[in-house]
């Protein structure tokens, strides 16, 4: 079980969180001007990297805040965490893996 460094509550066990998948997925700003391809790319396609993954976590059994974690998907080591949602500029701070 991972230990997720919630930027608001400190390190907490994974069971308190939900993982919200890849961060940085942009919902097209003007859906009406967006092609079917662009729209379904937003809906379905994912980077799914073997390496560092920026992903959203939600502290559901805690502060209920969303934040972004950078985690290596092979070692599962957590490299950084930023305290804002995906639209804000991430303030990355080192976190203990």
């Amino acid at each position: 079980m991972l230990e997720i460094p919630c930027p608001f509550c400190g390190p907490r066990p994974e069971v308190e969180f939900r993982c919200g998948g890849e961060a940085d997925i942009r919902r097209p700003a003007d859906p009406d001007r967006c092609s079917d391809r662009a729209w379904t790319d937003y809906l379905w396609n994912r980077t799914n990297p073997k390496g560092v993954h920026r992903e959203r976590w939600w502290h559901v059994h805690g502060c209920r805040r969303w934040f972004v974690v950078s985690r290596h998907t092979v070692s599962d080591t957590i490299l950084a965490v930023s305290d804002s949602g995906q639209t804000a500029q991430p303030q990355e701070t080192a976190a203990d893996g």
């Binding site: 959203r56 939600w58 804002s84 995906q86 639209t87």
Partner: peptide, 8 residues
């Protein structure tokens, strides 16, 4: 989720 991550 929508509030915090899309329209904060």
């Amino acid at each position: 989720e929508w509030h915090q991550t899309e329209w904060p």
